[in-house]
């Protein structure tokens, strides 16, 4: 995945201010930053549903959002995007036929996100965390090569969060690239690589260990603060 000088304007505000970075295949990349810093906009640009002002986004060798990519990239939005008046299994069966994924994928992904007990429940009657996992399950259909997951672990209890991160690492081990956004710093340590964002720009692009070493912070939260202070000390 290669992003070059990506600029996005929403209304009068420039949300992304010329981002450039590349991500190699395989592995979990964490996209971190405060709420409103442009994480979701960047993810929307990568899956090709965002109008961009300038710059290029290349995914798996193709321009972002081009037809051949649509079945190879899994996308899960921040707020759960499932039909509330369909059961979990019906939701997944529909998205599986849209993606051309085999029928057997439905039970596989239900199991992967731990929703086996709720498969026959209407999505509208699920708890917030369950609905989020149902939405994540849709992104896992058809074994995509790139997974773009916007805050997939929000509102989950620690056990489930642990299970999902195990799943993410297993997928990465199989060669899948995962771009996972979060605004919780303690999740950052679980990523192989971090993109720290603030106000529409990339503040840092490194592994968690290298970031800690470079800033000399106790934890990633401190490292992030140190980076912001450094950036603001520089004359603009």
């Amino acid at each position: 995945m290669a992003v070059r000088d990506l600029r996005v304007r929403r209304g009068r505000r420039e949300v992304l201010r010329g981002l450039t970075f590349t991500v190699p295949r395989g592995g979990v990349v964490g996209l971190l930053g405060p709420s409103g810093c442009g994480k979701t906009t960047l993810m929307r640009a990568i899956v090709g549903v965002q109008i961009v002002e300038s710059g290029t986004v290349t995914v798996l060798g193709e321009p972002a959002g081009s037809p051949p990519l649509r079945a190879r990239v899994g996308y899960s939005t921040q707020s759960p995007a499932v039909f509330s008046d369909l059961t979990v299994a019906e939701n997944l069966a529909y998205f599986a036929s849209v993606l051309g994924a085999p029928r057997s994928d439905v039970s596989r992904v239900i199991e992967e996100v731990g929703l086996t007990g709720a498969a026959r429940q209407l999505a509208g009657t699920l708890s917030g965390g369950q609905r989020g996992r149902a939405s994540l399950a849709v992104a896992l259909l058809g074994r995509p090569e790139l997974l773009v997951l916007d805050e997939p672990t929000v509102g989950l209890d620690p056990v489930l969060r642990e299970e999902l991160w195990t799943l993410f690492h297993r997928l990465a081990g199989d060669g899948v690239t995962l771009l996972v956004s979060s605004h919780v710093m303690d999740e950052a340590a679980r990523c192989g690589r971090l993109l720290l964002m603030r106000e529409g720009a990339i503040l840092a692009d490194d592994s968690p260990a290298a970031l800690l070493a470079r800033t000399g912070g106790r934890d990633l939260e401190a490292a992030f603060l140190r980076l912001i202070a450094e950036r603001e000390a520089q004359p603009a």
Partner: peptide
């Protein structure tokens, strides 16, 4: 409003 349209627009549909 539910975001399913955005999800479908990112799919082969």
């Amino acid at each position: 409003a539910s975001g399913t349209l955005e999800r479908l627009m990112a799919s082969p549909l």
